[in-house]
Simulated scan of single mutants.
Amino acid sequence: MGLLYIVPTPIGNLLDITYRSINILKKVDYIISENIKHTSILLKYFSIKNKLLKLNTCNEKEKKNKYIIMLNNGKNIAIVSNAGTPVINDPGYLLVKHAYYNNIRVVPLPGACAAITALSASGLKTNQFCYEGFLPKKQKSCEKKINSLCKEIRTIILYESPKRLIHTIKLIKKIMGSKRKIVIAKELTKKWENIKKGTVKEILNIIENNIYWEKGEITILIDGKKKNKDNILSSKILNIFNILKKEMKKSTAIKITAKICGFNKNILYNNIIKKKYNEVD
């Protein structure tokens, strides 16, 4: 029974590959590549001579069985993507899944990943985060997805194409607000690497009408939603409510207080009815 190695490759700077990765790529029987021409450049740079097999999103269903048979026959195979850690937003998931079905050992190697690299330099919360990959291309689906992330308290990591960057940032501004903190990281580990942090409004001002941001690999990080400090009701809000509740039902007083103060009526309900005013009408 052969081994299936998951081998990360550099996301920009070729020197970011590990010694272990080079050693594995030299000694396995085959290397499965997302793009043979692209991988050949890396192998040539490190004087690695090996047999390359192709696996991409178009042929993965067809090829996986062939490669599983090769592994079952004792061949050791390494899978690489164009850049970064294989299977993360890249082909290979089905192959790994079926390797487990066939009791084939999967050996992951540590290495480059744009999402984690960007997160480490973001200055945003790193102890809790979620990776969402690429947003849907269709407008409605994209808006729906961003809306679903609106209340996410963890740092959100996205990948985006440079052609859609401005459009995506504008949607984030529309749905999450102009003051939400975000980070955009372009061409990580390359000599023209650029990382910008600021509010959505500030970032939009930087990238709009700037052709520099129209090319390259982009990672977007969005600060998680902060706990609403307004959950602690001010004396002014409570005074308004106390005046109104003398003239009407509490539920009606809450609705009117919320409109006057620009406050969420559910927060008012939770704070006033549940915590302060438990008496029955």
Rank of each mutant, 00 (worst) to 15 (best):
K249Y: 14
E247H: 13
I254K: 02
T257A: 11
K249V: 04
N242F: 11
I260C: 04
N239Q: 06
I256L: 14
T257Q: 09
L238Y: 03
N231C: 08
D230L: 11
M248S: 15
A258I: 05
G262P: 03
S235F: 14
K246R: 14
I267D: 03
N242K: 13
A253V: 05
I254N: 06
T252W: 07
T252Y: 10
E247A: 12
N231W: 02
A258R: 06
N242Q: 07
I232P: 00
F263E: 02
T257D: 09
K250A: 02
N242S: 08
I267Q: 10
L244I: 12
N264V: 08
I232T: 01
F263R: 04
N231A: 07
F241V: 13
N239V: 08
I260K: 07
A253R: 00
N242W: 11
K255Y: 13
I256S: 07
I260S: 04
S235Y: 15
I232D: 01
S235D: 14
K249P: 05
I232C: 00
K265N: 00
I240R: 01
L233T: 00
A253L: 10
I232E: 03
N266H: 06
L238I: 03
A258K: 08
I232G: 00
K246M: 11
M248F: 14
N264C: 07
M248R: 15
I254E: 01
M248H: 13
K245D: 10
C261F: 01
N239C: 05
K236R: 00
S235M: 15
K245G: 10
K255I: 14
F263Y: 14
I240K: 06
N264K: 15
N231T: 01
I267Y: 05
I232M: 08
I243T: 12
A253W: 09
